[in-house]
Nucleic acid binder design. Structure first.
Length: 288
DNA sequence: CTTGGGTCCTGTGCGC
DNA sequence: TGCGCACAGGACCCAA
């Protein structure tokens, strides 16, 4: 799925199109995503104005003038694409007012008062769209148990070490657990552990404070660099304008099984192992 | 409580 | 060229 950098890239693409705009039409073409969308989604959203576009972890939050917040999660394969009004430059525009000709897996279309169309597309349908009162947002099941934002002030060495204390599970698994820190996924966990020189197999509670500090730095650095690159484009992900992100060219270990380890002076080889059912890429020589 | 495994769904790429 | 299988960026749910 899009991880935090991809979701943040999508949020930034949506902001100029949606922030301050009225959603004058909402079309649900297929309501059964990971969970069924609210049956009254269209009725509750239509006619409201988007007052702010935020992000928490991998979830895009659209605050609405009605006092609701719409939560958008892209799952593994979700995309958001924006189509300019008819006649505007670089616009396909063809299905602007004709939802019947939307493409495969275009599940929801939002039309703005200025004639732009925002399309939510998700082939695997692991994503979700939900509505909740903004006042209750922190209690939403998708957000209630999330750990700190990795780019925020509340993610630091001492707090991460405290969160990991006593855990026997591998550090890879602990970092994928959104209660530890919110927004990391398989790619950026692998990349951060490599940068920090920590083996993904190491017990989460058995890492020194100094190395935990390095891990915090590695997480922040890799996420910030990926956001600056517009995220990573593998199979499905695109920026909202259809452009590819390009951080995938800077992966040091992810999906690079058999390649030489890129660390300075390291003669190791990147290996692929499986941890709790998911691929892990790392260098056993420089990651300890 | 933690931890590991199965599950949801569709598309793609690879080996035969 | 065609087919079948493994695998894919997530997160929930349940059993042990």
């Amino acid at each position: 799925m899009p991880e935090l950098p991809e979701v943040e890239t999508v949020r930034r693409g949506l902001e100029p199109v949606l922030a301050g705009q009225t959603l004058c039409k909402v079309v649900l073409r297929r309501p059964d995503l990971r969970w069924p969308m609210p049956v009254d989604l269209s009725a509750r959203v239509t006619g409201t104005r988007v007052t702010a576009l935020r992000r928490r972890s991998k979830v895009i939050l659209a605050d609405l003038s009605s006092g609701d917040t719409m939560l958008i999660h892209l799952g593994m394969s979700g995309r958001v694409l924006i189509h300019a009004p008819d006649g505007a430059s670089s616009s396909p525009g063809a299905f602007h007012h004709d939802p019947g000709s939307a493409g495969p897996h275009d599940h929801v279309l939002f039309m703005t008062g200025h004639g732009w169309t925002v399309v939510y597309n998700d082939p695997r349908r692991f994503g979700m769209i939900d509505l909740t009162r903004t006042d209750d947002l922190d209690r939403h099941r998708m957000l209630a148990r999330l750990g700190p934002e990795p780019l925020g002030n509340r993610f630091d060495g001492p707090r991460l070490q405290a969160a990991l204390a006593g855990k026997a599970t591998p550090i890879k698994s602990a970092l994928l657990d959104q209660r530890t820190v919110a927004g990391l996924g398989n790619i950026y966990v692998c990349e951060a552990l490599h940068r920090a020189g920590i083996s993904p197999r190491r017990g989460a509670g058995r890492i020194s404070a100094h190395r935990i500090d390095g891990l915090v730095t590695a997480v922040r650095d890799v996420l910030a660099e990926a956001i600056a690159a517009g995220g990573s484009s593998l199979r499905d992900y695109r920026q909202t304008d259809g452009e590819l992100g390009y951080f995938q060219h800077r992966f040091r270990v992810y999906d690079r099984d058999g390649h030489p380890c890129p660390s300075d002076g390291c003669t190791g080889t990147v290996r692929r192992i499986v941890q709790s059912g998911r691929a892990t890429f790392y260098c056993a020589q420089c990651q300890r």
